[in-house]
Design a binder for these strands. Structure first.
Lengths: 215, 215
DNA sequence: GAAAATTCGCAACTCCGCGTTGCGATAGCC
DNA sequence: GGCTATCGCAACGCGGAGTTGCGAATTTTC
């Protein structure tokens, strides 16, 4: 982030303005990246309800008008700021055993959620910004994609005989992520590897008991 | 909830008003109740970020000034609208067996969350309104109270030998509610008794496996 | 290396919701 | 029927959402 500076021109600047963050000469796509990053930071700190375009512009070292030239309105800005940073996918582990696969997947998910880069995105997806149809669609598609990509992890376990026949990958994965999001969104408790391991243990016990078989 | 009347005097109650829209001659405390109810409806339909005092006043059949005479600002109004409707507690079942207790508790929780009266409250507690310190405090206290009140349900099961010694009631209850809130807040999936039963089954299996013992 | 085409900063504007104030109207109470 | 607290109403200042016109800086192009 901070896609500014890189003052390569040898010219002396005439801007006698006492400007601490001089993000002046950042043209072109750099402005776009700076504004979107600033929007995510504002989302993380102030939240969607308190996010103002002027604050985003100020944080990005850009004028308000510039923001409105690239994005139609506040909602479009927030939507693009979220979707742009949502392309990163969690790698699906394949350790050869279901128990270690599940534990590793849970840990990677927790690390992804708690990473500073994703903090603003994670907070906003489930706030009032989630009422925007575009954000809701992004959220739906995000989990559909995650479940689809992680399904082979479960199917391999079934093939190896570690899990009962008919185990539904989506049901199992929902059980895995539920405790994490409960602590994140509802209880406001910190997330760490212990939470991930506990979620994996619970899911593993339920899966072996056949509680995730398709109805 | 509805911290009014409890008319213990033998008098017949005079509150037979079936007044949905025309809340004109409703002075005094009736205005307060109408405004708070209107605020909750606005929270449920538009969300906290889009809630305006003028819309709340219009819905309550009251002028904007009247709202500001009773509540300092928008945040105070929302906070009181939420806290007023949060006194209602879920009854803790006591069927004599842990499995049926757990299932019944989960079903009551789902019914409480999905009831029309609580919808606005539930939606707002985890939206951007949750960033308000008062709302965050209410949310924390709400779950602390719920866990404390439901703990005997778990402790009885331990005493009866249905669960391992050292089972932590709070850990177990978090596991019970996690799938419900995942579907409510993250996946936007409908809640019904099947979800409650499934959550109870998973928690039961994990509890019997000793996964909720204190570390 | 300078003109041409973009892109940006800046000031000024409208619109709307927040929150406040003063005054007149009305409802509840005795 | 009169008194008083409460409410409606109009008007205001403030700040943020968007918009517009113009000048300046930057990038591109030759």
């Amino acid at each position: 982030m901070n896609a500014q500076n890189t003052d390569r021109t040898g010219r002396k600047d005439r801007t006698d303005h006492p400007e601490p963050p001089p993000a002046r000469q950042a043209r072109g796509p750099k402005v776009q990246a700076a504004v979107l990053a600033a929007a995510r930071q504002e989302l993380a700190e102030a939240g969607y309800a308190a996010l103002t375009v002027e604050n985003v512009a100020r944080r990005a070292g850009v004028h308000k008008t510039t923001v409105y030239r690239r994005w139609k309105d506040r909602e479009t800005l927030v939507t693009e700021a979220l979707t742009e940073h949502l392309a990163a996918s969690i790698l699906i582990p394949d350790t050869g055993a279901f128990e270690s696969d599940l534990r590793e997947l849970a840990r990677r998910m927790v690390r992804s959620i708690t990473s500073v880069d994703e903090q603003g995105v994670t907070a906003a997806l489930y706030s009032d910004a989630g009422r925007l149809p575009e954000i809701a669609a992004v959220r739906q598609g995000l989990f559909a994609d995650r479940f689809r990509r992680a399904a082979p992890l479960v199917e391999r376990a079934v093939d190896r005989g570690e899990l009962p026949e008919g185990t539904d990958p989506a049901l199992l994965l929902k059980s895995l992520i539920a405790p994490v999001y409960l602590r994140l969104l509802v209880l406001s408790e910190p997330l760490d590897d212990a939470v991930a391991d506990h979620a994996a243990d619970i899911t593993l016990a339920a899966a072996r008991a056949g509680l995730f078989r398709r109805t």
